Simulated assay, not measured.
Amino acid sequence: MAKRVLITGAAGFLGSHLCDRFLAEGYEVIGMDNLLTGNIKNIEHLFPLKEFTFYNHDVTKFVHVPGEIDYILHFASPASPIDYLKMPIQTLKVSSLGTHNLLGLAKAKGARVLVASTSEVYGDPLVHPQQEEYWGNVNPIGPRGVYDEAKRFMESMTMAYHNFHGVQTRIIRIFNTYGPRMRLDDGRALPTFMSQALRGEDVTVYGDGSQTRSFCYVDDLVDGIYRLLMSDYTQPVNIGNPAEITLKQFAEEVVALCGSESKIVYEPLPQDDPKQRQPDITKAKSILGWEPKVDRAEGLKRTLEYFKKHI
């Protein structure tokens, strides 16, 4: 009998790719999403499959799923600045109340649970590259605090259930990720640059563009998530591509790839925006045997094909 996995945030960018991966691995998948930021079109290709079930549900409310569950992946949360700044209370609730509900479900079902944390737990880092032992530099009352502290609380709650109740838990810290099914209007660098370039609009870079990011293609990320879930490692693990680039250089790459004549324009840097972001993936390499395979040039080409169809 196929093992069953519950994936929250299933209609989102990452959640929908995780549904695809687990179905391809032979699992029965239960997708859950309240569609606050998710898009049902991301998973509509799965509805004809008898191995896939969808619940339109808010995980901050009590979560009930009949039958056995082997694994839970908690990926429900607004994840882009434009979303969590617009929905600060929901962002805090999904990583606190939602995490509590899903850890309780994991305890009741005897399931292993993996929670999606983020590189934002490191805040505007004073250590570079960021390794898992770094505690971060976060402004808890700044505008980004609703997301950063929500994820830090999620990690604390998860470890409490692991240590106190013996729940099998895994924590992934996700660095910047991109690929098909990103929302064009979600405010993150790649969809913003690509949609502006394809429309021939000015490409907006915040600050002077010297701040860095490290972009990981979604297929690589999903593989890292799968490997961590199946591992015996219970401490947080960074998953991301350590190929670091400034946002100015990244904008120039995207404009060139799109064959656009867009100009790059500069806007003021938002408060507490991280100046550097690069994962130390030593643990992922040594414990999971994982490292990214898709280089940025190839990943951007695949993503451009998706964006061209949706502009």
Rank of each mutant, 00 (worst) to 15 (best):
G38P: 00
E133D: 08
L304C: 04
D185G: 06
V113C: 06
Y27W: 14
T118H: 02
F250A: 07
V65M: 02
G299T: 15
E252T: 11
S156A: 12
P292I: 13
Y84P: 11
G98V: 15
S96M: 12
R4D: 01
P129D: 04
L228W: 09
F52P: 01
P191W: 09
A189Q: 05
D273Q: 14
F22T: 04
K293S: 07
I287S: 05
M32E: 02
I174K: 05
L35G: 02
Q211L: 09
Y306A: 12
A251F: 02
Y147V: 00
N34K: 14
P81Y: 06
G98H: 01
G12Y: 01
G209W: 10
Q276D: 09
V5A: 00
V5Q: 03
G136Q: 10
R112Q: 10
V167W: 02
K308E: 10
V203I: 11
G31F: 08
T118V: 12
D280F: 09
I311L: 13
V115Y: 01
Q235K: 13
E44V: 07
T212W: 05
D208P: 03
T234M: 14
S119E: 10
R173T: 07
L126R: 10
E149P: 01
A79L: 06
E68F: 00
H74P: 06
G179C: 08
N56K: 13
R173I: 13
A76S: 11
H57M: 06
N241E: 08
P143V: 14
A11Q: 08
K50R: 11
I30A: 02
L23K: 12
F52D: 00
G31W: 14
L221Y: 04
E155S: 06
G207L: 11
E51W: 04
I287L: 12
S262N: 05
H74M: 13
Y226F: 12
N163A: 15
L184Q: 08
Q249H: 12
A160K: 10
C216H: 07
H64N: 15
Q276G: 01
H45Q: 13
Y306D: 14
L190Q: 10
T169R: 09
V113M: 11
N238H: 10
S77T: 15
P268S: 09
D58S: 08
D33K: 10
T212R: 13
I7D: 03
